[in-house]
Design a protein around this nucleic acid. Structure first.
Length: 815
DNA sequence: ATAGGGTTAG
């Protein structure tokens, strides 16, 4: 007969004879520790020893049970997984030694089976147990709840009640813990009823579980407090449940009061869990430091959960160095800590280091979880480090988290920024439980500039039709942003009505997006109405409405609104400032422009590239190119936008050589010119009649920078050829690539060089492209006049009058 | 022998 004992030496101690040392190894699952005399631990670490009993009698069997009991217990406590084979062997020994009828031993075996997930065998043992008690039932119910099998747990619980076995405080604790979620609120209430009937309501275990349940199943603060009040014994856990409950709802005053009360209880000291809840209530750095100090005093600093909460909070308060200090001081690091440090560095604009932490963590052979992966990937997306992003994607496939909702939401954003929309769709469709944020990411991925509101609206409809998810303000903001011109106005209005009907209409972000949408669709009046409707106008709201007026040629009104904004207590931001400066340049109000320039220096915003470039542009447009050059020279780290502004300035001033010089400087500084840069330098060259240079830059653009010239770029070339009288070449280009402006340029060149033939063709084409543009009719009529063809000229003017067109009056500024 | 409280991500 075989029996399992902690070690051969332990068996000797219990008077069980052992037959041959090599026999002790026959189970194949023990290591060399069996012949050591140092007790049970060594066996748990190395495996299970096995000995052969020479004889069987009741006395020996009793001794065997005596050995088995502590052994089984130590196995149950061990963190090392126990295989099914090992469990079965123990099971066999229990049967053979007749210990199976000793319920407390069998309960422990049952615990072993179920703790390590061998549920089928656990149930076989359960079914064959001669005697069951409340522990038997509780063990099985608890392990089903641990693995998330709620129906099985409740089925067992009902079965237990049918057999007249009364649940005890242990049974109630595990069941109530499982009910601490909003969806199981009703079940929890029923169990509370049973608990009251059983008379265990005031037990510290069952009772604190009740308190916890009321907090977690829908913020029933009153019921939670009553249950806490009724407790016979308020121990540390009970206090912690209360503190964490109020911390969770953000009632920091109550947390503070509870903590002080607890402080007064003799013999009660806060522990790790208390500090974690207290940390949750911190809203600024000084508080974090205080709790940190207190936690150190009570020795809770070394706890891994306190540590990761500190890492997280220091990062959120912007104190990266303290965050790093805590992180470095932690001996043990789990996924919580890693994900906290990665997201912490990323939120403090140190994404590169965040990605480094991820690499460190992988190098140390930690297996990243979905939290770590999504934080890292977000850093990659924000850094636009797509190579790193794709590497992280590799890790996701390896770890099997590719289809996790959080992970996939960022992943599809990554592929959207790479323009891989097919992959985006694939990733999205694979997510099993799509939540609203996943939908938002998906809609955002498809709301790309130039695609209009079509794709995002289609997704919004699918979302509303196929799910019951609550639409967020962010969802509609994304759809509104995809409305980019008049064609999208009907969609924009529909979303607006959706907003009015929903509960999110008071959101400032939604209001701002509505203003922006009406602005993009050219509806200044509606934009203003939407602006008025915003309950709490922020700097974004003001920027949007000021931008609307400026965009639609109402610069004076835009500047008036600026004054109102300042009167409303909102100061300029890097968004509103360039708008106002640009309005000044449009209006040529250099005095106001100068004031804004001074403000931008004082506020430190002048370092922003958009502010800087708007100032450069403003001085250039107001005719003081020297000021413009000065501001350009003051730029600490000029980028393409800054260079573009100054090149544009030179172009406006007809200074082609200066424009070319700046362009060369840009290249020398390692920057890449974009299509705006080329437009600026090309227009400078063509305006000065530099035909060869114009051709050179068009070629450079195409060959070196692989930028496809748009019709505006070709218009410059047409202009250059036109000024030089090379009308045939100009005509060739316009025929191939010309848009409206190229035709217009060609037409006026024809007029200057008295070319009726090409001029007439150009004018016809222009009228075709835009029949409501008065300029084409006038240019054509002027050509006829120059040629002395009075009748044709008159016909042309009549045609214009017929479709009710008048020449816009000219305007000029005088200040 | 069976039990109650805490931290991270898009």
């Amino acid at each position: 007969m075989f029996v399992v004992v902690p070690s051969a030496s332990a068996a000797f101690r219990f008077g069980i004879s052992v037959e041959g040392k090599e026999r002790t190894c026959r189970s194949g699952i023990r290591g060399e520790g069996a012949d050591k005399v140092d007790g049970y631990e060594s066996v748990n670490d190395r495996g299970i020893g096995m000995i052969r009993l020479t004889a069987f009698d009741a006395e020996v069997a009793n001794k065997v049970c005596g050995v088995l009991e502590p052994f089984l217990l130590s196995l149950a406590k061990s963190s090392k997984p126990i295989t099914l084979r090992q469990c079965s062997q123990i099971h066999a020994k229990l049967i053979l030694s007749q210990c199976i009828s000793q319920t407390h031993l069998t309960n422990t075996l049952l615990n072993l089976y179920s703790k390590f997930g061998h549920f089928r065998h656990a149930h076989i043992l359960f079914d064959h147990m001669p005697h069951r008690n409340v522990v038997t039932w509780t063990t099985l119910i608890s392990s089903h709840l641990r693995t998330g099998s709620l129906p099985k747990a409740f089925e067992l619980f009902n079965h237990m009640r049918e057999t007249n076995e009364s649940p005890n405080e242990y049974t109630f604790s595990v069941l109530l813990r499982a009910c601490a979620t909003p969806s199981l609120w009703e079940v929890g209430l029923q169990i509370h009823g049973l608990l009251v009937r059983s008379g265990l309501e005031r037990d510290k275990f069952a009772g604190s579980s009740i308190v916890h349940m009321y907090f977690n199943s829908g913020n029933n603060l009153g019921d939670a407090c009553r249950a806490f009040h009724d407790l016979l014994m308020k121990d540390l856990v009970a206090w912690n449940v209360m503190i964490s409950g109020f911390a969770h709802v953000g009632d920091f005053i109550m947390v503070h009061r509870l903590f002080s009360e607890m402080w007064e209880v003799p013999g009660l000291k806060p522990d790790d869990s208390t500090f974690v809840s207290l940390l949750k209530c911190c809203s600024y750095l000084e508080q974090v430091k205080q709790i940190h100090g207190l936690a150190s005093k009570f020795g809770a600093e070394a706890d891994i959960v306190v540590g990761s909460a500190l890492v997280d909070l220091y990062a959120k308060c912007g104190d990266v160095s303290s965050c790093r200090k805590v992180f470095d001081s932690m001996e043990e690091k789990d996924n919580f800590v890693w994900s906290s440090i990665i997201s912490g560095y990323n939120m403090n604009d140190r994404g590169e280091e965040a990605v480094h932490f991820f690499k460190d963590m992988c190098r140390q052979r930690n297996r990243p979880d979905q939290h770590v992966l999504s934080s890292t990937l977000k850093a990659c997306v924000e850094l636009e480090d797509f190579n790193a992003g794709i590497q992280v994607h590799g890790q996701m496939i390896k770890t099997g988290y590719q289809n996790d909702c959080f992970v996939a939401s960022v992943l599809l954003t990554l592929y959207a920024s790479l323009g891989e929309l097919v992959d985006v769709d694939k990733l999205f469709r694979r997510i099993v439980d799509k939540d609203i944020v996943a939908w938002n990411s998906m809609i955002m991925a498809h709301a790309q500039p130039g695609r209009g509101s079509g794709p995002s609206t289609k997704l919004l409809q699918e979302l509303r039709r196929t799910t019951s998810l609550q639409i967020q303000a962010a969802t509609l903001v994304v759809v509104l942003k995809s409305c980019e011109n008049k064609l999208d106005l009907p969609v924009g209005r529909q979303i607006h009505s959706l907003v009015v009907k929903s509960s999110i209409s008071h959101h400032t972000l939604i209001g701002n997006a509505l203003v922006h949408m009406y602005s993009e669709c050219g509806q200044v009046g509606d934009a203003f109405k939407a602006f008025i409707d915003i309950v709490r106008k922020d700097d974004g709201s003001w920027s949007s409405i000021i931008g609307t007026y400026k965009q639609n040629g109402m610069e004076s009104e835009a500047l008036e609104l600026c004054k109102e904004m300042l009167a409303d207590g909102i100061t300029f931001t890097i968004y509103s400032l360039p708008l106002c400066i640009s309005a000044c340049s449009q209006l040529s109000i250099i005095q106001v422009g100068k004031q804004l320039h001074v403000f931008s220096i004082k506020s430190g915003y002048s370092r922003d590239v958009y502010v800087g470039s708007s100032i450069i542009d403003m001085y250039a447009k107001c005719g003081t190119m020297e000021e413009s050059e000065k501001v350009f020279g003051e730029q600490v780290e000029p980028n393409e936008v800054i260079y573009n502004a100054v090149i544009c300035g030179y172009a406006h001033h007809g200074k082609a050589q200066e424009a070319i010089d700046v362009f060369n400087k840009l290249e020398k500084n390692g920057l890449t010119p974009n299509h705006v840069t080329f437009l600026a330098v090309l227009s400078a060259c063509s305006h000065s009649g530099y035909v060869e240079d114009t051709l050179y830059f068009i070629t450079l653009m195409l060959n070196k920078y692989k930028i496809k010239p748009e019709s505006e770029h070709y218009a410059c070339l047409v202009d250059a050829f036109g000024r030089a009288g090379r009308l045939e070449e100009a005509y060739q280009i316009v025929q191939k690539d010309g848009g409206e402006s190229a035709w217009r340029t060609l037409l006026s060149a024809c007029r200057n060089h008295n070319n009726t033939e090409i001029g007439e063709k150009s004018a016809m084409r222009m009228i075709e492209l835009n029949p409501s543009d008065h300029a084409s009719y006038i240019l054509l009529s002027n050509i006829y006049t120059g040629e002395g063809k009075w009748e044709e000229a008159l016909k042309c003017r009549e045609k214009m009058a017929k479709i009710d067109l008048k020449k816009d009056p000219g305007s000029s500024w005088l200040i």
